[in-house]
C-alpha cells in the first residue's frame, strides 16, 4: 500500500458463527460505552458552540464566505487595466474548446484595424462551468468570477458580453484571476526569452 495515503484499516473482527459467539458479541457491545462516547461528543460540541463561539454557521445573505480562486462561477470578462479596453481578442478558442457548445461570438474588422468582438454570448442554460474557456483563454480575458448567486428572472441575464464585462467605472476593483488558466508563479522559468532589438 502506498505509504503516503495513510489509510487506517478498520478491524471489525470476523462474523460470529455460533449463536454463543453472537450472544457474546451482543453482550460486549451492550456494555461497552461506545454509545455514550457518541453522546459525549455531541454534548461537547454543543457546549463549544454555545459558549465558546465555535459555530460554523455563516449567516449567508448577510455574511459571505470568500470564494476560493479556483471556484467556477458565472464568467467575467476582464478589461485591460491601462486602457480599459476589453481584453478579449476574439480568437475563438473558448468557442472551440467549449464542450457543451454554449459559447458563440461574432467578430469583425473594425475601424482601428483590430479584430473587434461585436457579439459574444454564453448560453448558461447549457454551460456546465467546466472552466475550459478560462483555461484556454490566452489573454485571461474570460475568467470565472465570483458571482455564484445565479438565480435570475431570466436565463439570459448573464449571457451577453456587456453583462460579463467589468463595468468601466469599477475597473479599479477588477481583480486578477488566479484560477485555471492563470499563469503559475513559476511561469517565467518555463519561458525562453526572445531577443529584441529595442
Amino acid at each position: 500500500m502506498n505509504e503516503k495515503q495513510k489509510y487506517i484499516m478498520l478491524d471489525l473482527g470476523g462474523t460470529p458463527l455460533t449463536p454463543w459467539c453472537r450472544f457474546k458479541r451482543v453482550v460486549k457491545r451492550t456494555f461497552r460505552i461506545e454509545l455514550f462516547i457518541g453522546l459525549w461528543v455531541t454534548i461537547r460540541e454543543m457546549f463549544k458552540t454555545l459558549f465558546m463561539g465555535k459555530s460554523h454557521t455563516t449567516k449567508y445573505p448577510f455574511e459571505k464566505m470568500p470564494i476560493p480562486p479556483r471556484y467556477r462561477a458565472i464568467h467575467d470578462m476582464l478589461r485591460l487595466l491601462e486602457s480599459g479596453h476589453y481584453r478579449c481578442i476574439g480568437c475563438g478558442l473558448c468557442e472551440k474548446i467549449c464542450i457543451s457548445n454554449c459559447i458563440a461570438m461574432e467578430t469583425r474588422y473594425d475601424e482601428n484595424q483590430r479584430k473587434e468582438v461585436s457579439e459574444y454570448t454564453i448560453n448558461f442554460g447549457r454551460c456546465i462551468f467546466c472552466g475550459y474557456c478560462a483555461e484556454v483563454c490566452p489573454e485571461l480575458a474570460i475568467v470565472h468570477g465570483a458571482r455564484y448567486e445565479t438565480a435570475s428572472e431570466q436565463r439570459a441575464s448573464f449571457s451577453l458580453f456587456e453583462d460579463m464585462l467589468t463595468p468601466i467605472d469599477r475597473l479599479k476593483e477588477q481583480e486578477e484571476f488566479a484560477g485555471y488558466g492563470a499563469p503559475t508563479p513559476w511561469a517565467d522559468k518555463n519561458i525562453k526569452k526572445t531577443p529584441l532589438a529595442y
Binding site: E45, M46, K48, T49, L50, S55, H56, K59
Partner: peptide
C-alpha cells in the same frame, strides 16, 4: 436549536 448546536451550527436565528 439543539441539533444545530450539537452540529456546530446555530439553527434558526433570523
Amino acid at each position: 436549536k439543539v441539533l444545530a448546536y450539537m452540529q456546530r451550527r446555530i439553527g434558526p436565528a433570523h
